[in-house]
């Protein structure tokens, strides 16, 4: 495992917002996404939302010094509130909104049972322990209402949280993706080639060059 670090120093995909890489529709869509604040929730109640925030922090952890944080939990709540479905659900799972409400409540109940505190109050170690048990299908308390915890973990927690995180421009900058691309696409496609409007990766000894290049992607 490579440690997480700043591979693309100075790169901000949003710097390209006013270049030919973004069309009007894209700007409108991303503006709307960026308007979601970390505390916005319409679908889940306060307790469930707090649990979701804590789960999100374990599934897609963010650097503590990052501002603003990617509002992962709020983005999931947004999806549930707007009723956007994935197009399928596993036979063992209820509809997504119901599944989330039930699952978050059940996780909290498991936390109370094991540690006597709500999930969001637990330390990272305890939270990870519960999530690992959930992933293996090991959580079977009455609060689950018959819903298999492994299915909930693999088919709701993981896809919903991970998709939300990587749908955010901050995550795009973190992984060095070029971001939206229309009408301008790309020209240089071969090995080790990048267009001047793509993120430059920082290689040992060449950090400053990458930084300088990354400040130019929005030109």
């Amino acid at each position: 495992m490579h440690p997480r670090k700043d591979h693309f120093p100075g790169y901000d995909v949003l710097a390209k917002r006013d270049t030919p890489s973004w069309n009007a529709k894209t700007r409108a869509v991303i503006d709307e996404r960026l308007a979601i604040t970390p505390e916005t929730h319409r679908f889940l109640d306060k307790a469930a939302f707090a649990t979701l925030q804590a789960v999100a922090e374990r599934i897609v952890p963010q650097p503590s010094d990052r501002t603003p944080l990617v509002p992962v939990a709020a983005m999931v709540d947004h999806k549930l509130a707007s009723g956007e479905h994935d197009g399928y659900r596993y036979a063992g799972l209820p509809e997504q909104g119901e599944a989330w409400r039930c699952g978050l409540k059940a996780l909290d109940a498991e936390a109370q049972k094991a540690f006597g505190a709500p999930f969001s109050d637990l330390g990272a170690w305890a939270q990870d322990g519960l999530l690992k048990a959930c992933e293996k299908g090991g959580l079977t308390g009455p609060a689950w209402d018959g819903m298999p915890s492994d299915l909930f973990f693999k088919k709701r927690i993981i896809p919903d949280l991970v998709r939300a995180y990587y749908a955010h421009p901050t995550a795009w900058s973190e992984i060095g993706w070029g971001g939206p691309a229309s009408p301008r696409g790309y020209v240089r496609m071969g090995f080790d080639r990048r267009d001047p409007w793509e993120a430059a990766e920082s290689y040992p000894g060449h950090e400053d060059e990458a930084y300088a290049e990354n400040l130019r992607v929005g030109r």
Partner: peptide, 10 residues
């Protein structure tokens, strides 16, 4: 998931 995911994604 967790740190393993975000660093691999890089």
């Amino acid at each position: 998931w967790g740190e393993a995911l975000v660093s691999e994604m890089q």
